[in-house]
């Protein structure tokens, strides 16, 4: 195992150890926090594919997080009420099955990403940031005014969706589901970035024109990466909705987009386990400092500033440097 692979495994193992340790010591609240970290890390792994490897600074990934959440909420609430989600053009029944909801959430998010990506990838740099943000805000305001599903108040569903053979209400079992999906997304990311597609994507980030001179069309590459990235974030959104049994427009807001970006930058841009470390540290700080002051995010801001200025490789970059010294 290479040094990077060892580090990635160690970070993931640390998260799993926290959850199991908390379970053994009878602290289900901490297990739930670890689950939250795993789900947010999953969103970060998704964003990392676009931002870290593709160089696409999307400031609107909350739109995919939120869409994944809303798909879950809508299906679950219809299943509870016993009404169909829609009867036109054909009847789609509600569902309380995670295995049915996840693909639906990912497909809907991917479709949204095709549209958003195709339009925003015509621009680059600060315009790309602004266009992705604008799309996310559009959907955010739509959700606020969507009375049928709670509008501004959001949408609650009282029963967590089910998974065959598991009790999803047991914190450790729901953590296991989230952690396995996180591991799968990390493995998928690793495969993609090492494939010729992934290499070309990274090459396009380094220089678009040179990639074209090699006969590759960067737009197709970047759009594919953007859609894959969005689908992973959509899956995270679905899990997050299930974790809280609640979705609201906040999941779609630009604060959320920013938070997902913070996980990636804090942990290490373009590093496989970067978002895991980033989300973990974020949750830890929120818990430790959130009790001290409601302005804890000011300290997070300082930390972020320090990372960007002095450790552009993020937490994982620091750890990797430490390992090299040993």
């Amino acid at each position: 195992m290479g040094r990077d692979a060892a580090l990635n495994t160690a970070v993931f193992a640390a998260l799993v150890a926290v959850a199991f340790g908390a379970h053994v010591y009878g602290a289900p609240y901490v297990v739930t926090l670890a689950t939250k970290a795993a789900i947010l890390a999953l969103a970060g792994v998704g964003l990392n594919l676009a931002l870290g490897y593709g160089g696409m600074v999307s400031f609107g990934h909350a739109v995919f997080f939120g869409i994944g959440g809303y798909v879950t909420g809508i299906f679950a609430s219809h299943a509870a009420a016993g009404t169909p989600v829609t009867t036109f053009p054909f009847t789609i029944a509600g569902s309380a099955e995670m295995l049915g909801i996840w693909p639906m959430a990912m497909v809907v998010t991917a479709l949204a990403a095709v549209v958003i990506g195709a339009l925003s990838l015509r621009t680059t740099g600060v315009y790309f940031i602004m266009v992705t943000l604008a799309f996310a805000q559009m959907v955010y305001y739509f959700a606020i005014s969507w009375r049928a599903y709670g509008g501004e108040d959001g949408l609650s569903f009282y029963v967590r969706n089910s998974f065959p053979g598991l009790n999803t209400f047991a914190p450790l079992q729901f953590f296991a589901i989230s952690a396995v999906l996180l591991a799968m997304a990390m493995a998928f990311s690793a495969l993609v970035t090492r494939s010729r597609f992934g290499l070309a994507l990274q090459a396009a980030r380094a220089n678009r024109q040179r990639v074209m001179a090699s006969g590759i069309r960067p737009f197709a590459l970047q759009l594919t990466a953007f859609v894959l990235s969005a689908a992973i974030v959509g899956l995270a959104g679905a899990l997050y909705a299930d974790l809280n049994r609640f979705v609201s427009p906040a999941m779609l807001s630009w604060h959320m987009s920013g938070e997902i970006m913070v996980f990636v930058i804090l942990g290490g841009v373009g590093r496989l386990a970067g978002p895991v470390a980033g989300a973990g540290v974020f949750i830890l700080l929120e818990q430790l400092l959130g009790g001290v002051s409601e302005y804890w995010q000011a300290l997070l801001g300082l930390l972020l500033l320090a990372i960007v200025l002095y450790a552009p490789g993020g937490i994982l970059g620091l750890l990797a440097r430490g390992m090299r010294r040993v």
Binding site: Q202, A203, A206, N207, R210
Partner: peptide, 24 residues
């Protein structure tokens, strides 16, 4: 034609200033 098509047709360019994909 767009530039990636020119490359696909068989024009291989070695640009001025030896530009490689540095991170790869």
């Amino acid at each position: 034609l767009p530039s990636h098509r020119a490359a696909q047709l068989g024009i291989g360019l070695v640009p001025e200033g030896r530009r490689t994909f540095a991170p790869l």
